[in-house]
């Protein structure tokens, strides 16, 4: 199930825009590929992230992977629960496992991202 209410990067992040705020996380496909997530290294609130640039890293038992920002803007909030419960990324990648809230700078950037249908094809589930 790939939610239709958001857009996706080729690197398996999702972004959902609510009232000018972009909520960012990784997809269910990504969490399955990673396996058990044990740590998520995220930027502090106030940091500026840039579209398609690295904003953090995610450690699973087996490997470490980079996280890429789907949009540019200032980080307003980091999911406070991920510090003690990184497994939320596995359990609820599209809801409770969200990572950042970013003040969206340029809504036109969303056009650079994949739709749910395009992402489905990208991961070969089309």
């Amino acid at each position: 199930m790939i939610p239709e209410d958001r857009k996706y990067t080729r690197e398996h992040e999702w972004v959902k825009v609510e009232n000018g705020v972009a909520v960012v996380g990784i997809t269910d496909y990504a969490q399955r590929e990673l396996g058990d997530v044990v740590f998520v290294n995220l930027p502090a609130a106030g940091t500026r992230v840039k579209q398609f640039e690295r904003f953090g890293e995610i450690e699973s038992v087996k490997a470490v992977s980079d996280l890429y920002a789907p949009v540019s803007g200032e980080v307003i909030e980091v999911n406070p629960r991920l510090g003690s419960e990184p497994e939320l990324v596995n359990r609820s990648p599209y809801e409770e496992g969200w990572m950042l809230r970013v003040r969206l700078e340029d809504p036109a950037e969303l056009d650079n991202l994949l739709t749910a249908e395009e992402y489905r094809q990208h991961i070969g589930e089309g």
Binding site: R32, G35, D36, V38, V61, K62, N90
Partner: peptide, 20 residues
């Protein structure tokens, strides 16, 4: 199981999760 290549074999990496 999630199958992975290991030493020339197709082996299970995990079934439900490594930690469990």
């Amino acid at each position: 199981a999630r199958m992975v290549p290991f030493a020339g074999w197709e082996m299970p990496l995990q079934y439900t999760g490594i930690i469990e």
